[in-house]
Amino acid sequence: MQGVFRSNLIKGCGLVIFMIIVLICMVASVILGLTHVNAAMVIDAYTHFDGSNQHIIIRQERVPRALIGASVGASLAIAGALMQGLTRNPLASPSILGVNAGASFFIVMAVTFFGMTSLSGFTWLAFLGAAAASAVVYGIGSLGREGLTPVKLTLAGAAIAALFSSLTQGMLSTNEKSLDTVLFWLVGSIQGRDLTLLLAVLPYLVIGWLVSLVISPKINTLMLGENVAKGLGQNTIIVKMVAGLVVVFLSGGSVAIAGPVGFIGIVIPHIARWFVGNDFRWLIPYSAMLGATLLLVADIAARFVVIPSEVPVGVMTAIVGTPFFIYLARKGDFK
């Protein structure tokens, strides 16, 4: 499939433009909000910190939030693009396939039963949950003669997601105190997250971004079909496993920071494909930039819907994402 951007030059220019848009969105995310600040104050907050309310808000709240929004959005979009490629399923994404639900379940279990509060522990549990859920869903989805079909995979994902979220809700319903602490996180939000939380996860995310770029030509080959890829001398199992690991790192890491933010992983790769076609060498960076943009814009919008309180950004993305998912399901030619 070809996108609207044909030549490499245009694609490169497009990527630069999208990078600039992400930067603009990040600046907007720092400046816009209930407390008015301007660009000069942002620079002052880091060069001449005077302890005023605005400066504290900028350093503690706005800047971490913009950075987290950009990294989580990019990670989820890359994870979605890789999943759609690996499973050849246009509907695949971390939220639909139960990966987010698995990560949430593990974290809530740790909070409820073991009273866990350490950040690094959260991260590892989120990875573990994401890995467990994706392995199970992938396993069930590939049963049968035809192997992995979109419908089987989606159904398996829905069942696993339903199971995990029932268990999560069950744990929370027995313990109102942990519900209060976990509820906002469960919906997916990047508000009030500490920068240390991002720093704890950032190494994994960066590894995920880089590896996904490195293996993107291999994914292109894999997209030609399992047999063709093998015939061209590719060790398909290793490529799939590495890509699977990247998905687990990116979606598990995102859940650890922001909670299960849905639908970015499904919407963004389709938009990116509209721009650059099916070439993963371009698709991955485009998805990253568009994903960061979407999450930042959704987060800014979430601040202004019900002033002075905020809508969790996960709700905003779901409201955009549901019609899109239905559009894809209607368009798709399933038996």
Partner: peptide, 9 residues
Amino acid sequence: AGAEAVTNL
């Protein structure tokens, strides 16, 4: 999924 998001909201 959409209905659940609004319920959460």
